[in-house]
Amino acid sequence: MPLHFRLLMNAVAGGLLLAALAYDWLGNLAHELVGAAMFGLLIAHNTFNRRWYGSTARKGGRDLRGWLNIATIAALAAAMLTLLVTSVIISRSLFSLLPIASSFAARQLHAQAAYWALVVVAIHVGMRWAMIMASMRAWLRLGTPSIGRTWILRALALVVAAYGVHSWMVIGTGSRLLAEAEMTLNLWNFEEAALQFFLHQAAIVALFVCLGHYATRLTQLRREGASCATSRHK
């Protein structure tokens, strides 16, 4: 399957994760259907990338970037598995006939895992941002990177990331990640400001995409600097 098609599929899965956070806006049945569709795309994503996992297992821990990559994937797997298990436990529509007793603790854990999944997915995307941009340039036939376009995009990313910090405080994501606040997906008045909710959540995603991307760039520069120093001493 072409890379750009897989990237589009992943983008749709990410959009579904954002949409699923708007529980009060969707209603329970739509929320569960959106979640089921997201997990379907997630299974497809892992199926298409199954060879990559073997390569990562062999090479992943050779440097700092490799260890960060493994840690991010492990955290993402834990968040998604927690979401999947708790979604079955607390289901009121798709899995309501299963003889499983729902609980307040499972609902709390489900909501907390959703916020962690959002953050870790964004970091995961940021660590692959250079590859994504290269694929998009090839797909759109933009040729070699333009210095002017690169700096415009960097400035735009800085503005969006700054708004992401503001959105982080508005939504209270930090306290929800640490379970310091009551864990619920009913956190917004969608009758008055549905669009603002999605803008805030998208800005938080953009913030962590930037952090993941530039953390990866720093590890690359560090490795390149170490390689140059080693070459000079030979």
Score class of each variant (00 low, 15 high):
3 L>I: 09
3 L>Q: 04
3 L>A: 11
3 L>R: 03
6 R>Y: 09
6 R>F: 07
6 R>T: 07
6 R>I: 08
7 L>H: 04
7 L>D: 01
9 M>S: 04
11 A>W: 03
11 A>C: 01
12 V>A: 08
13 A>N: 03
13 A>M: 07
14 G>M: 11
15 G>V: 06
16 L>R: 06
17 L>M: 13
17 L>A: 11
17 L>Q: 08
21 L>W: 00
22 A>T: 00
22 A>K: 00
25 W>G: 00
25 W>L: 09
28 N>A: 10
30 A>W: 01
32 E>W: 04
33 L>D: 01
34 V>G: 00
37 A>Q: 00
37 A>D: 02
38 M>G: 02
39 F>W: 07
39 F>V: 10
40 G>Q: 10
40 G>T: 07
42 L>K: 00
42 L>N: 03
43 I>G: 05
45 H>E: 05
45 H>C: 03
47 T>A: 15
48 F>G: 04
49 N>F: 10
50 R>Q: 14
50 R>L: 14
50 R>W: 14
52 W>C: 10
53 Y>T: 12
53 Y>R: 10
53 Y>E: 11
53 Y>L: 14
54 G>I: 06
56 T>L: 13
57 A>H: 07
57 A>Y: 09
58 R>G: 01
58 R>H: 06
59 K>A: 11
59 K>E: 03
60 G>K: 02
61 G>R: 09
62 R>K: 15
62 R>V: 10
63 D>T: 11
63 D>L: 12
64 L>A: 14
64 L>W: 05
64 L>H: 08
65 R>W: 08
65 R>Q: 13
65 R>I: 13
68 L>S: 12
68 L>H: 11
69 N>A: 13
70 I>H: 00
71 A>F: 09
71 A>T: 10
73 I>R: 11
74 A>D: 02
74 A>S: 12
74 A>L: 14
75 A>S: 11
76 L>E: 03
76 L>P: 01
77 A>E: 13
79 A>M: 07
80 M>P: 02
81 L>R: 15
81 L>P: 05
82 T>G: 13
83 L>F: 09
84 L>M: 15
86 T>S: 13
87 S>T: 08
87 S>L: 05
88 V>G: 10
88 V>K: 09
92 R>A: 14
96 S>A: 15
97 L>V: 15
98 L>K: 06
100 I>Q: 03
101 A>R: 14
102 S>E: 07
103 S>I: 08
103 S>Y: 02
103 S>R: 07
104 F>D: 15
105 A>H: 10
108 Q>F: 09
109 L>I: 15
109 L>G: 01
111 A>K: 00
113 A>W: 00
114 A>C: 10
114 A>M: 02
114 A>L: 06
115 Y>M: 13
115 Y>C: 11
115 Y>N: 06
116 W>S: 11
118 L>E: 06
119 V>C: 09
120 V>R: 08
120 V>Q: 03
121 V>G: 02
121 V>T: 14
122 A>R: 02
123 I>R: 00
123 I>F: 08
123 I>Y: 02
125 V>M: 05
128 R>N: 13
128 R>H: 13
130 A>E: 15
131 M>K: 06
131 M>H: 05
131 M>D: 05
132 I>D: 01
134 A>K: 06
135 S>A: 14
137 R>D: 00
